[in-house]
Simulated assay, not measured.
Amino acid sequence: MNQPLYAIYGASGCGRGIMPLARIQLQNAGIQLSKLVFIDDNATASEINGHQVLSYASFLKHDARQRFVAIAIANSAVREKLSLQCLADGITPWAVTANNVVTMDNVVIGEGALLSPFVTITSNIRIGKYFHANLYSYVEHDCIIGDYVTFAPGVKCNGNVVIEDHAYIGSGAVIKQGKPGAPLVIGRGAVIGMGAVVTKNVAAGATVVGNPAKPLVKN
């Protein structure tokens, strides 16, 4: 019987950071590592870090009874486009989680999440699909996070925060705790700059930087 085939979509930095976690996850499940590949239509090598690199078309043609894909693309718009294409082609979303990720009480995470080492997600939290949480980031209690949200390394999301779809939170950013019934809201598609300290709501599509975080002024 043909075995399932697993892939990390994207062989650049994000994908190469997720691949070792995927490898451990499959080893723990007793799945042959030969069934773990990269997908990348722009790759210049046929093998990266010990894993075969396939085009998307080749992946679809590969002999397998079921296909699973973890989408390791930082750009959330591209991530959404690829997820919809995979869904249309009958590919199953695959979540990859480091062994030392901590999740506590009443946590719901949508399909396709990628959770890097030392991520902590505490209690009473709802997270949408295709969430990326990079190294040492955390989500505190009573937060709601939308679809295709990206946390760069070291993001500190404190309690009672709402983050809408496609928001990007930069490395080391700190999001102040909101209040029950009056959460701090980061709007759809907003970008929080590296090291920013967010103390109030951020409008949809806005880019904020600094401490305290303020809208970026382009010269």
Rank of each mutant, 00 (worst) to 15 (best):
G17H: 05
L135F: 14
L33Q: 11
E47Q: 13
I109C: 00
N211D: 13
A133Y: 02
V101P: 03
N201D: 13
P183R: 09
G112N: 02
L115H: 02
N201T: 07
F131Q: 00
P183M: 11
G30V: 07
H141V: 05
K61I: 09
V108T: 13
D147Q: 04
D89F: 06
L84I: 06
I125D: 04
L26R: 02
T97A: 07
K129D: 01
G193K: 04
L216G: 11
I39T: 00
V217H: 11
L184N: 07
V119N: 03
Q85M: 14
R67H: 11
D147W: 10
S46Q: 14
G50V: 10
Q85K: 14
P153Y: 04
A7M: 08
D40F: 07
L26W: 04
G10R: 02
E47G: 06
G181K: 10
K214L: 15
M1S: 14
N42W: 12
G193E: 01
I121S: 00
N42K: 13
A173F: 06
L216C: 10
L33K: 02
M194C: 12
L5A: 09
G110I: 02
K179A: 14
T92Q: 13
L82T: 01
A70D: 00
T103M: 15
S55C: 11
F38M: 04
Y148D: 01
F68D: 03
G13L: 09
Y168G: 05
Q85G: 08
A152F: 08
Y136P: 01
A190G: 04
E47V: 14
G195M: 12
V78N: 12
G210Y: 01
N100Q: 11
D142W: 06
T150A: 10
V69H: 02
Y136V: 11
A88K: 10
R188D: 07
K176L: 13
A22T: 05
N49L: 14
F131G: 01
Q3P: 12
C86M: 13
P153D: 07
N219T: 14
S137Y: 03
G195E: 08
V191G: 03
A167R: 01
L54H: 06
V37R: 00
P117R: 09
I48E: 06
S55V: 11
G110W: 01
D165H: 11
K129I: 01
I109P: 00
P212F: 10
Y56T: 10
G50P: 07
V78C: 07
N134G: 06
R16V: 09
N219I: 14
D165S: 08
A22Q: 01
A113K: 03
I175W: 04
N219F: 15
T199Q: 10
G195N: 10
Q52R: 15
V53L: 07
E80Y: 12
A70K: 00
G159L: 05
S76C: 14
V209F: 10
Q27K: 11
V107Y: 01
G154F: 08
G146D: 05
I121C: 04
G30L: 06
V209W: 01
N49E: 15
N42T: 14
A203L: 14
E47A: 13
N124A: 08
G205W: 04
G146P: 08
G10C: 05
C157S: 03
E140C: 15
A29I: 06
K35E: 13
P212K: 11
Y138G: 07
T199E: 11
L82R: 02
F151Q: 01
A204G: 12
S76M: 04
T150P: 05
K81R: 15
E111M: 00
Y148V: 02
N211I: 15
